[in-house]
Write a protein that binds this DNA or RNA. Structure first.
Lengths: 154, 154
DNA sequence: TTCCAACTGAAAATGTTTTTCATTTAGAAA
DNA sequence: TTTCTAAATGAAAAACATTTTCAGTTGGAA
């Protein structure tokens, strides 16, 4: 069992001489406890319940900071990339449900062979990769199947 | 040797009963002949040289259409996703130079084993994946090395 | 030719992100 | 504790990106 991410983020701030303010705490709590990706606007809306004075600009600034420190990642979709999600401090990818937005982490992406081959073939020096998988989470898949069954039986 | 992508795009439009207008031709030519990813604004600027009356809205609309037909893909970076690039009609990924933007296509992404394992472990039904590799193209790597050598010898 | 769905540009609306600036605050140092 | 300052804040405005609306135009099938 790993320590809560919000603890890590607090430690990370301290290490980088950054302050742990009330607005930031509110934002951290939302991000750390969400298992879905969230837009800056959505984070702002939720965090305001704990700290009503919070400005949207601070959300953007905090997301930038946490991204830089590696605790938060932007989530990319074909049709828009305005969402963020917590990540462990280190290399990780997400598996995202395209129906409900639920995300699951995984770290063993295993692209070394592919990258080596491409480097050899193309001469590019590959330093970064972005991998994202999308599909239906177990819950959404189940309710979809239930719906189909129901429709067929009518 | 494959046929020019712009031909494919023209055919694709015809198949879908969409018109091949002058504004669209100008946009198609820019996209098909670029080996770099381009933002809508950049496409607009370039295409205006061929068709000065062209509106930016039409660029957005044409990009939407070509994306839907599968001839164009959005390029994703950690810090912004406002660029587009031509893709063969079908599954493909890009290897992008983070210095100059040059892009190279590849299609053999070989993720089947990873996807199968994750499906089994998580219960997700994975239907889509996004993979993007970034690094330095041969030319940029070479000029970087030349710079470093020069700096060292001073 | 005719005709109409598809397409267009301009303008305005909407949405997202960044900048600026005067004020406040966390937390290290005294 | 109190003092002090770099870091952080919110509000407003600016900048940038994207979509909608609408009246007029056009490609290409009939």
């Amino acid at each position: 069992m790993s320590a809560p991410i919000s603890h890590d983020m607090r430690d990370g701030l301290r290490e980088h001489r950054r302050k742990l303010t009330r607005p930031r705490q509110a934002i951290l709590d939302i991000i750390a406890s969400a298992d879905h990706h969230l837009t800056p606007a959505a984070i702002h809306k939720r965090a305001r319940k704990k700290y009503p004075h919070l400005g949207l600009v601070t959300v953007y600034r905090t997301l930038d900071l946490l991204t830089e420190l590696g605790y938060v990642q932007r989530v990319h979709f074909d049709d828009g990339c305005h969402s963020y999600i917590a990540a462990p401090h280190g290399h990780a990818h997400h598996l995202v449900c395209s129906t409900c937005g639920k995300a699951q982490e995984f770290s063993d992406c295993d692209l070394d062979a592919l990258i080596a081959t491409l480097q050899r073939k193309t001469g590019f020096e590959i330093s970064v990769h972005m991998l994202e998988l999308m599909g239906r989470c177990p819950a959404c898949a189940a309710s979809q199947k239930a719906l189909t069954r129901q429709a067929r039986s009518q």
